[in-house]
Design a protein around this nucleic acid. Structure first.
Lengths: 202, 202
DNA sequence: GATATATTTTTACATTGTCAAGATAGTGGC
DNA sequence: GCCACTATCTTGACAATGTAAAAATATATC
């Protein structure tokens, strides 16, 4: 009868058992609430309610913790793009790709810190196996999306092109390195059409 | 007669007078020799041979120092692309743009830390007036290069497209976020051709 | 129930950016 | 020539960070 009172959730005692997952949760939460440069190991530990040295026993270094958080970011990223494609008006390959392109820019803007971590070039996250796999899954999703449009012979090049253009636009916007005129026009739609036209032309 | 002995260079005494410029030099040097995350205010001060608090009298904050260094980076960037265009085989607008595209990727790879600082999204350098101007000059150079190809009506969109694709490819390479196949093939040339073909098509 | 292991905390250290106070060089006035 | 004055640089301090070692505590095993 006492079994009914055993809660399946973590007991928030000393060993709460799933600190690994809770650190990832805290990291995601921090990325959603503050800029990337404020998301530190100690900040994540604070949010998880543990001391700053606790993560050491689950992640050898801060880079590995951030790497796993980035891997999670890729997973929600892939999911967001997939859902956008599935809910496109007409289910042609072009229309699905178009919807993914819009979702890409939307994700980069709404998850700015996470996006920057996921694609952060310098010193942020370690290339953990999960991160490599998750990043590769994102690539495969894009590859599969352009495949029915350009065929197997040009799928790699086309996917790389769309990936580059989308990533470049997102980063330039996040870094505020675009000239003033882009703030007025909604440039993303324009860019998407050029990208898709380039695929058709090639 | 004593005037002949007056050296125009800095006297490396207590007030050496042009510490402002020497800090920028030291910063450039540091960016060339170590990854971006190792380039700190104190490291730059060390290289300039002054104490860690000396820069405070010339730059209100580290971000401003890095911002001025990034502005210098844009200047050498623009110069490199301009020289590449001028030394293209045939001096058609397309060939010049092609040469600039190659120089773009070469610069990003050979000046990796500087490039990441120049385009660094998060928290690195402050948007100093010089940085804004230098970044804008780079944009104008690209705009002027696509103008004779696509005409005034589409120049902004075309420049943005090339800028995005080039920047995205460079960042993905620096961040190691590309699938394995790109290491084998020399992807840049392929990408450049797709970009230019896209311009012609549009 | 006692011992051993795994987890967490506490404490410490080197590094960073920023600030305040003191030291030094150059400048102007008499 | 000497003295105040200002600009520049140094020294010392502080809070915050990532990492490591030692101490404390909870869980597991026998």
């Amino acid at each position: 009868m006492a079994l009914a009172y055993v809660l399946p959730v973590a007991k928030t005692k000393y060993h709460h058992g799933d600190l690994y997952q809770q650190l990832l949760n805290a990291g995601e939460q921090a990325l959603a609430e503050m800029p990337l440069d404020k998301v530190s190991l100690r900040e994540i530990a604070r949010r998880a309610g543990v001391s700053h040295a606790a993560p050491k026993h689950h992640f050898p270094t801060t880079g590995h913790l951030l790497g796993e958080i980035a891997a999670r970011g890729y997973q929600t990223f892939v999911k967001a793009l997939g859902e956008a494609a599935d809910s496109a008006q007409e289910q042609t390959p072009q229309s699905r790709l178009h919807a993914m392109g819009r979702a890409y820019q939307r994700f980069a803007e709404s998850h700015a810190a996470a996006y920057q971590l996921m694609f952060g070039g310098a010193g942020h996250c370690a290339m953990t196996p999960n991160l490599v796999a998750a990043s590769f899954a994102a690539w495969n999703q894009l590859y599969d999306s352009v495949l029915p449009i350009v065929g197997a012979g040009r799928a790699n090049a086309a996917a790389l092109h769309i990936w580059s253009a989308s990533h470049g636009l997102a980063m330039l916007k996040l870094a505020n390195r675009l000239p003033p005129f882009v703030a007025k026009h909604n440039v993303e739609e324009q860019e998407l059409q050029i990208m898709l036209a380039g695929l058709a032309a090639e």
